[in-house]
Each structure stands twice: as C-alpha cells, then as structure tokens.
C-alpha cells in the first residue's frame, strides 16, 4: 500500500504555473527525493501542513487526506522543516522527554539521544548547541513522533559531516522499518546521497531522473563470468540515446531534449539543464557527434547548443553574433562567424 499518494496535484499562482498536475506515490520502505526550487518546496510544505488549501488534486497519507480527517492526516506525517523552533532554554534531555510525553512515544529518551548521537550533550541547553546539533535535536523529535511518512526539507543544508552521516543512517533505518520518506531539496547532490529515486518538479511538471548506481564490483564480476563462459556479449540492438553526467559517484542520465546547451571549460564539458550545471564524461567533440541527430549544433569552438531552445539570433555587427535561448535565465551563447553560414543552411535560409 502506498504511504503517500499524490494525485493530480497542481498549483497556479495568478498567471504563473507553480507546478502542473503531477502524481507521485511513495510506498512503505521507500525514499523518494524531489529536486525543486524554494518556491515549489514552500508551496508543497504548506499544502502538507494544511495552511494552504489544495485547489486541484489530492494528497493522501495512508489513504487519509486532510479533507477527511485533518488530525489523523497530521498525525501520520512528520515534517523536518527548516524553520521550526526548539525550546532553547531547555536541555536536550528535557526537550526529548517533553516530546516523548507529548507524542506518547514508546522510544525511551536514552534511545532517542543515542540515535541522533547527542549523548554527550544531553545536559546542555539547546541554545548552546551548534546549528548541526540543533538539527539533530529536530531529527530526534521526528523519531519520537514516529509518523508513517517523514518529510524532510533540505535535510543536509549547512550541516557538518557527522550530522550528515547520522541523517543518512537514520533515513536508511526508517526505510527498513517500513516508513515512507520524502525529501524536498534544491540540491541534487543531497538527494542523490540518500536515494536513487529522484524526481525533478518545476513548471514543466514532474520528471524522474534516471540514476544508475556505480557498482564496479558487480559489473566486473559479470564480465568475468562472461569470459569464463566464452560467450561474446550479445550486441545491443537498442540505440543508446541518453547523455550521462556524473554527480559524485553516481551517473545521472538526461534525455537530449532536456539539455539547453553544453559549454567546455578547461577541457571539461559541462551540460546546462534548467540553470544547473552537470559535468559530462565526454569531450565536446564526442558529444557533438552523439547529439547531432537531436538537433544540436556546434555554434562555437567551446559550445554546443540545442537548436530547439534557441529563441533568437542577435547580430551585433557584421561578424559577431549571439544566440539567445528561451530558458529561464535567457542565456546567451556566442556564435562564431564561420558557423553562421552553416546555421543558416540548417535553418533553410540561403
């Protein structure tokens, strides 16, 4: 059964679309991350908290929506929000025993302290803790609440390495215990650190990112097995049509039409997608060859542009040109004068 079920949820703000209808399900023991901007994140969070009416679509947690039973709905979700406060004059232990009694939790205060590694700071007032330690107190609070669905807002923003590893461990543990976890973040890296199920939500809708986990061991083993069997690997008839990029130790695949443009700097080709930069594993020349069938054009020695995204060609002087894209930031890409003729040809102009 799906712990979280979002059906056709959409939001408009006056003339702009915050996000078009999308559906998302998170099952027990699953972690999903939604990579999105601050505005969308705030809208989603206030929808969960019920401070913003849901005009279209529905959010159900354990089959209960806020409209049916608000108390039950709220009891089923725990939100790890950035702007929640703590009782700063109380010690960590006093905070935890308050939460334990408030939520009627079965976890003992000691277990809570140990889980978030605040054993040593138990008798310190919360206001004397560092920001990272305070975030761990917040995390402890969620453990005492023990809802079915945990929602994390920017879980690893501005925190130290120790806290980050505590969080990753705890989120894994929550999943093993059959909880649903939803992460809302503006940072793709922090999403990828916890889960491989990453979505991107914006005004174009919800897209799942294809993420391949680097697993060199198993790949090597398979190869080894192939060699032993003396079989040549079957030739794949399916043509590979995604562009891989590397974020930390993970490979993220993009559809060519998603790409705005590619820039090469210091021998590294960077792929620009909706204002974000992803380093590519290929050189510009390799990418040009791969992407040519998708309407990509090498407009400059160090740029490849997606012609579908070009809005206008600006002519500054007789031999200096700029391509303006229709992405959010209206990026402008240089166009070499030698390439102008080629471009005109591609566009069917003489």
């Amino acid at each position: 059964m799906a712990i979280l079920k979002i059906t056709n949820l959409e939001e408009h703000d006056e003339h702009t679309v915050v996000f078009p209808p999308f559906s998302l399900e998170v099952f027990a023991g699953e972690t999903a991350a939604v990579h999105t901007n601050t505005n969308v994140r705030n809208v989603l969070l206030s929808m969960f908290m019920g401070s913003m009416p849901i005009s279209d679509g529905e959010i159900r947690v354990n089959e209960i929506s806020a409209a049916i039973d608000k108390r039950k709905f709220l009891a089923n979700i725990g939100i790890f929000s950035l702007n929640d406060g703590l009782y700063e004059r109380l010690t960590v232990k006093e905070n935890f025993s308050f939460y334990k009694n408030l939520y009627g939790s079965e976890i003992s205060v000691e277990e809570g302290l140990r889980a978030v590694q605040l054993d040593a700071e138990r008798n310190q007032q919360v206001r004397k803790l560092s920001y990272s330690q305070k975030r761990r107190v917040h995390f402890g609070r969620m453990l005492f609440k023990n809802p079915a669905l945990f929602i994390f807002e920017e879980p690893d923003q501005n925190i130290d390495l120790e806290t980050k590893s505590v969080f990753i461990k705890l989120i894994r543990k929550l999943c093993q215990n059959g909880k649903g976890v939803l992460i809302l973040t503006g940072n793709l890296e922090s999403a990828l650190a916890v889960t491989s199920r990453v979505y991107r939500l914006g005004e174009t809708g919800l897209q799942e990112l294809d993420v391949l986990q680097d697993e060199p061991d198993t790949a090597a083993q398979e190869q080894h097995a192939d060699l032993l069997n003396g079989e040549t690997p079957a030739v794949q008839p399916v043509r590979f049509e995604k562009v891989p990029t590397k974020v930390n130790d993970k490979i993220v695949l993009f559809d060519p039409p998603e790409i705005d443009y590619i820039e090469s700097s210091d021998g590294q080709s960077n792929i620009y997608i909706k204002g974000e930069v992803y380093p590519s594993v290929f050189t510009l020349a390799e990418l040009e060859r791969k992407l040519h069938p998708y309407g990509f054009f090498r407009c400059h020695r160090s740029y490849i542009v997606n012609l579908q995204k070009v809005r206008e060609v600006v002519t500054w002087t007789r031999n200096s040109f700029t391509l303006v894209l229709n992405d959010a930031s209206k990026s402008s890409i240089p166009l070499s004068k030698g390439k102008m003729a080629e471009l005109k040809e591609m566009l069917g102009l003489k």
Partner: peptide, 14 residues
C-alpha cells in the same frame, strides 16, 4: 516567536 507553537499545533495534542 521561537516558532514552536506550530510544532505544538501539528502534534497530536488537541
């Protein structure tokens, strides 16, 4: 002021 009232309101306490 410390943003803790919302936490109380979202808790199971009526």
């Amino acid at each position: 002021e410390k943003n803790t009232l919302r936490g109380l309101m979202l808790s199971p306490a009526s």
